[in-house]
């Protein structure tokens, strides 16, 4: 895919070559070694990765959710509507957060005050960001996210509600500000499968209705498949492939994506023997300057060990596997 400079300017969010270390300045651990993202208005992008892949850190970096002393951005830039978010002051960032970029956490209890009634929390949020609302609009939005008796729920405390209901309230709060970008960090992994589908449907609805772009962080291939338009797959702190969902599903251009899809579809099938990928995902302490997937890859060649491979554009996206991009998918 070729992108012109003009496209870049129009993109809602453009992240290029993001590199992040966490930990104190004495003992930094590199978590993200290369992450690029280009998000247009109204798109749903799934960031798919396993534990240690850096997916959550990258999303939090976008929302500026790290304290200055616990993270450091080693390289890259985050352009949101043309503004470089990393250059903004804490105050400016606060104005953007909540209003233009909303964030939904995996664990809703993390962001709701357990001692404040739901209604009060929502009103306080709206007041802080100078968002106009009426009681009616509040109730309607709650209905929209699937809360059955909004008036009652407004008078309740978060701990009186179930996890799913709390997650809906979080989403409600997120969309009340009509942000341009919603970052959802594994919003369904702490709730039951039956509710999962409803929450995903809700997010899709909101996306359609308000044209809100969504970055959906998940480790669950099924979820990503269900909701996303575009997919970014991460492994070992690196983005290893990105492109439209359809293309990746039908023609993955990175061995890891390929294996992942095989694993997932093997679970879906009724096979008695599951397809499995040997070895385990990389953790940050094992990061080295080589292809992160080298150890588990069936297509590896010696050149894979020569530094971290660069992203290579392929039809419908890009991949970090030059071997497949150049020679095609054949075992050596």
């Amino acid at each position: 895919m070729t992108t012109s400079t003009e496209d870049n300017m129009n993109s809602l969010l453009k992240i290029s070559n993001l590199q992040v270390s966490l930990g104190t300045k004495y003992k930094p651990v590199k978590i993200i070694r290369g992450f690029d993202l280009c998000l247009e208005k109204g798109e749903i992008v799934g960031v798919l990765g396993e534990s240690g892949s850096g997916k959550t850190v990258s999303s939090r970096m976008i929302a500026g959710l790290f304290e200055k002393d616990e993270s450091s951005m080693d390289a890259g830039e985050i352009l949101f509507k043309g503004k470089n978010l990393t250059m903004l002051s804490e105050k400016e960032m606060n104005m953007i957060r909540g209003r233009e970029i909303a964030y939904v956490f995996q664990d809703p209890t993390m962001s709701l005050n357990p001692y404040k009634k739901v209604g009060k929390q929502l009103r306080d949020f709206l007041d802080t960001h100078d968002i106009e609302y009426t009681s009616e609009s509040l109730v309607n939005t709650l209905k929209e996210v699937g809360i059955n008796r909004p008036e009652t729920v407004l008078e309740m405390f978060p701990f009186q509600l179930s996890g799913g209901q709390n997650q809906r309230i979080m989403i409600c709060q997120a969309i009340l500000g009509k942000p341009d970008l919603l970052i959802a960090d594994e919003p369904t992994s702490s709730i039951d499968a039956m509710l999962r589908k409803k929450i995903l449907d809700l997010l899709t609805d909101i996306n359609r209705k308000y044209g809100m772009a969504i970055i959906f962080i998940t480790h669950d291939f099924d979820v990503a498949k269900y909701i996303c338009d575009k997919l970014v797959i991460m492994y070992g702190g690196l983005m290893i492939e990105q492109g439209p969902l359809e293309r990746i599903l039908s023609n993955p251009m990175h061995p890891y994506s390929d294996e992942l899809i095989k694993c997932a579809s093997s679970l879906d099938s009724g096979d008695s023997r599951l397809y499995s990928l040997e070895g385990s995902p990389l953790v940050p302490s094992q990061f080295r300057d080589e292809c992160p997937f080298y150890n588990r890859c069936a297509y590896r060649i010696d050149s894979c060990l020569e530094g971290i491979p660069k992203m290579v554009d392929v039809t419908g996206g890009s991949t970090r596997c030059p071997v497949w991009a150049e020679r095609g998918k054949s075992r050596v």
Binding site: E50, L260, C263, L267, S276, L277
Partner: peptide
């Protein structure tokens, strides 16, 4: 467990 590992464990159990 991660998706890529789930299969290994389930196969092992079987």
């Amino acid at each position: 467990l991660d998706v890529s590992v789930q299969g290994q464990i389930l196969n092992l159990l079987m």
